[in-house]
C-alpha cells in the first residue's frame, strides 16, 4: 500500500456516527467508572488517618462507600440503557457490531491488529463506527461490566436493606463466598483501569493517523470520513 494517505483536496464527508444517547451513555459511564475506581480503591486500601477523634465525629469512610454505591447504581442502569440502545439505536451502536459472529468481523480484527497494533502493514484501515477489534474489546468489557455488577451488588446485598441488591445475592455463593466475590471485584477494577489507559491512547492514535476527528466525535457525534475513489464498501455513502 504505497498510496499517499494524504490528499491535497481529500473528499471528506461528515457522518453522524454517535447519536446523543450514545454520547451521554459514554460520558456517564466514564464518570461512573472513574468515581467507582477511585472510591473502590479507597475502600480496598483506606488512607491511614491517625486521629484522636471519637468515631462519632467522623464518617468519611462511610461517605466514600456511599458514593461508591450511588455510582454503582448509576453505572448499572446506564449499562442497562446501553443494552437497550443496542437494539434501537443506529447501525453503529447496534448489538451485532459488538459480538464477532461474522467472518468479516474476524477479518477486520486481523486487519486492525496488523495495521494499527503491530504495524506490520501500513494503513489506512478506515471504518465509520468502531473498528472490529475495538467493538470486540468493548464486548469483552461489557462482560466484565456484568461480572462487576453481579459481584458488586451481590456483596452489597449483605449490607443493604433494599430489595434491589438482593436480586444479585444468588451470585456470591456461586463463586465461593464473599471473599472470592471481593477478589473478582477487585481484579476487574484493574481490568477497567488498564482498559481506560489503552482506550484513551488508541483514540489519540487514531485521531492522529486517520485524521477523522474521532476524539471530538464522542462529543459532537460527527466523524469526517474520506471518500475514496475505489469505494470498496468500507465507507457507506449514506447519512
Amino acid at each position: 500500500m504505497e498510496q499517499n494517505i494524504l490528499k491535497l483536496d481529500p473528499k471528506l464527508k461528515l457522518v453522524y456516527v454517535w447519536q446523543q444517547p450514545v454520547r451521554i451513555y459514554h460520558w456517564t459511564n466514564a464518570l461512573a467508572i472513574l468515581v467507582l475506581c477511585l472510591t473502590g480503591y479507597l475502600i480496598g486500601a483506606p488512607l491511614a488517618i491517625q486521629s484522636g477523634a471519637e468515631a462519632s465525629y467522623s464518617y468519611w469512610f462511610g461517605i466514600v462507600r456511599f458514593i461508591h454505591f450511588v455510582a454503582g447504581y448509576v453505572f448499572f442502569f446506564n449499562f442497562i440503557f446501553r443494552i437497550y440502545w443496542g437494539f434501537v439505536g443506529n447501525e453503529y451502536s447496534r448489538w451485532n457490531n459488538y459480538i464477532p459472529l461474522k467472518k468479516k468481523q474476524w477479518k477486520g480484527i486481523l486487519e486492525v491488529l496488523k495495521i494499527d497494533i503491530f504495524q506490520l502493514k501500513l494503513g489506512p484501515y478506515e471504518t465509520v463506527g468502531h473498528n472490529a477489534l475495538a467493538s470486540t474489546t468493548y464486548f469483552i468489557t461489557f462482560i466484565a461490566f456484568v461480572f462487576q455488577c453481579l459481584t458488586g451488588f451481590g456483596m452489597y446485598a449483605a449490607m443493604s436493606p433494599s430489595w434491589f441488591p438482593k436480586l444479585f445475592a444468588w451470585f456470591v455463593p456461586l463463586v465461593g463466598g464473599d471473599l472470592a466475590a471481593r477478589h473478582i471485584h477487585h481484579l476487574l477494577m484493574w481490568v477497567f483501569i488498564l482498559f481506560a489507559m489503552i482506550h484513551i491512547y488508541l483514540v489519540f492514535y487514531h485521531d492522529f493517523i486517520e485524521r477523522n476527528g474521532v476524539t471530538s466525535s464522542m462529543i459532537g457525534g460527527w466523524k469526517f470520513i474520506e471518500v475514496h475513489d475505489d469505494e470498496k464498501g468500507e465507507v457507506k455513502d449514506e447519512r
Binding site: P46, L47, A48, I49, Q50, S51, A53, A55, S56, Y57, S58, Y59, W60, F61, G62, V64, R65, A158, M159, D178
Partner: peptide, 20 residues
C-alpha cells in the same frame, strides 16, 4: 449477618479510623 455488621468497632470503620 456478617461479623462486620454486628461488630462493636463498626463506627470506627465508618469513620475511617483504622489500626495500622
Amino acid at each position: 449477618r456478617r461479623v462486620h455488621d454486628t461488630c462493636y468497632r463498626r463506627p470506627n470503620y465508618d469513620a475511617g479510623l483504622f489500626v495500622q
